[in-house]
Amino acid sequence: MNPSERPNAPASEGEFTGLAALVTGGASGIGLATAGLLAARGATVACLDVNPEVPAPLLGFRADVSDDASVRVAVADAAEALGGLDILVNNAGIGAAGTIEDNPDDEWHRVLDVNLLGVVRVTRAALPLLRASDHAAIVNTCSVAATTGLPDRALYSATKGALLALTRATAADLVRAGIRVNCVNPGTVDTPWVGRLLAAADDPVAERAALEARQPTGRLVAAEEVAEAIAQLASPRAGAVTGTAVAVDGGMHSLRLRPR
């Protein structure tokens, strides 16, 4: 299928009407919220995930971002179904706890392979398609951990710090090709993944309260709030925005409030 044969956009007009988007980790949490929002605003959207069950009108494709062959097949299949590609949201990622002493080399390699090299693999596979777009945009899901020192998150923070640097370097490489590259830096988001972490804590109620308290707004970030920021960066209306990191963290990075 070529771009002129793209599926019809949803009936409701929106800023993404006629555009095709691909979201990794799109079957849950931030990814699903983003995919649904882009579709609601007119995009045709494919989700890549290890468990790609997604509601209509989203299209699901199985992919493991740690496997280059899997990524290339899934990106090609998704682009064929969409009739091209205009927007890539690199959202797939995994968490990790521990200080610099706590994780063996194998765990460092595993988390870096998903959180950093997974973005490399998907972007690399998508670039030939994005270069053919008149409104190409890449948005990476980074983290407040890239800019703020968090306790017990050395490995995770290292992967997200590297992703922030990769976002800016890639933006510089691709700006003259007309491809914008940005990222969002969420704080702690109320997702199924965070829910599982809380459930495994010795005192889930106290742990949730601690996570809420470290964000100046006093609550966890909603996945839909991160999706809004991603959509803003991906929109053709943001044509002058590239190489930027947008914090969606309840003020966690920038604000220093006095204790109550």
Rank of each mutant, 00 (worst) to 15 (best):
N51K: 11
N51I: 05
P52R: 12
P52E: 15
E53Q: 12
V54F: 03
V54K: 08
A56M: 03
A56T: 09
P57H: 02
P57F: 03
P57V: 07
L59N: 01
F61W: 12
F61I: 13
R62A: 15
A63H: 11
A63K: 13
A63Q: 07
D64R: 10
V65Q: 08
V65E: 07
V65R: 06
D68F: 11
V71L: 11
R72A: 15
R72M: 12
A74M: 03
A74R: 08
V75M: 10
V75Q: 03
A76D: 15
D77K: 08
D77W: 05
D77N: 13
A78Q: 12
A78T: 04
A79P: 00
E80F: 05
E80T: 14
E80D: 14
L82D: 06
I87Q: 01
N90P: 01
N90D: 00
G95T: 05
A96S: 15
G98F: 13
T99S: 14
T99V: 01
P104M: 05
D106A: 15
D106P: 04
W108S: 03
V111G: 14
V111L: 12
L112K: 01
D113P: 05
N115P: 06
L116N: 14
V120G: 00
T123M: 10
R124Q: 15
A125G: 05
A125T: 09
A125L: 04
L127H: 11
L127E: 08
L127N: 11
P128L: 07
L130H: 08
A132N: 00
A132S: 11
S133F: 03
S133A: 06
D134F: 06
D134G: 15
H135K: 09
A136H: 01
I138R: 07
I138M: 04
V139P: 11
S143D: 08
S143Y: 13
S143T: 07
V144F: 09
V144T: 12
A145I: 09
A146I: 01
A146P: 05
T147A: 15
L150V: 02
L150I: 05
L150T: 03
L150G: 04
D152K: 06
D152A: 06
R153C: 06
R153D: 02
A154D: 05
L155Y: 10
A158Y: 06
T159C: 02
K160N: 05
L163T: 04
L166M: 15
T167K: 08
A169S: 03
A171M: 04
A171F: 09
A171L: 04
A172Q: 09
V175W: 03
V175H: 03
R176E: 14
G178H: 12
I179S: 00
V181A: 08
N182K: 10
N182P: 05
P186S: 08
T188K: 13
T188S: 11
V189K: 03
D190H: 00
T191K: 05
W193M: 15
R196L: 10
R196H: 11
